[in-house]
Amino acid sequence: MKPSSRFAAAAGSQTRRAFLQTALAAAPATAVSAAALAVPGSKPLRTAEGLIDVNVSLGQWPTRRVRCDDSRELVARLRRLGVSQAWAGTLDGLLHKDIAAANNRLAKTCHQDGKGLLVPFGSINPKLPDWEEELRRCADLHHMPGIRLHPNYHGYRLEDPAFLRLIELATQRRLIVQLALIMEDERMMHPLFRVDPVDTAPLRDLVQRVPGLRLVLLNVHRTLRAKPLLELIAAGNVSVEIAMLEGVGGVGTLLAQMPGGRLLFGSHAPMFYFESALLKLKESALTPAQSQAVGHGNARHLLTS
């Protein structure tokens, strides 16, 4: 069984008993119940599939403690809110130089606490010596379906030849590549912890140079929007998620502009309130097919393709 299919199988058994009760219900005009975000009198749409959240992190953010930065609490809460699978990176992977240990902990936590829900995406820093071994371990030892990259926290730009080599090797190993553009609003960062967003200008060309690359951009919409974003999505198998998508009806507006198969559900939990992503599916008037594609179908297809 190839690494990605191992996690797909685990997720499949989980989703059969998961219900998406909250995100797709129609709301009355003047009142909302706080009960699981469901609306009294409305008809929640039940599906046999739970949400697949492609943007979850484990660990503690260096400048803030948040609810559910304990992995067991996070798993329990995500499950209560209709998530059947969460692609999890490790916040230790941003700053720790012993990134092998960070990935070991990530894999162990996903296995022990994940209860079939957490899917590990290891961190790779191509500026560390012998990073290729870390990539091998992610694929062969931990059986991860993908990796998560933080070029701005690891101190390199996408023009760096090491980045091209990394995405080539990851693609050869059939690993999904997640690229986080930013982790928090740059205007309110801690003064000693300021990090610029990733400059994506070189990315379109790089995507075209690596056939077979499956690229998922995380925390995108604050710094990459409109034509440059759409051109990048069109350059290859490039997907984006909705954690930092803003503007009223943002999901519906974006789906009108881009291929529907490339938009994924992502929450940036626990750093963001998970309900933000959930309610975005409700704010836009999506068709059932769109809701299911964004909610889980596109991610599942990406995982198994």
């Binding site: 009223v248 933000s276 309610l279 975005k280 704010e283």
Partner: peptide, 12 residues
């Protein structure tokens, strides 16, 4: 901004 992201600050 999205109603959704901001309402989530309270509902979540």
């Amino acid at each position: 901004r999205s109603f959704a992201s901001q309402l989530a600050k309270v509902l979540g």
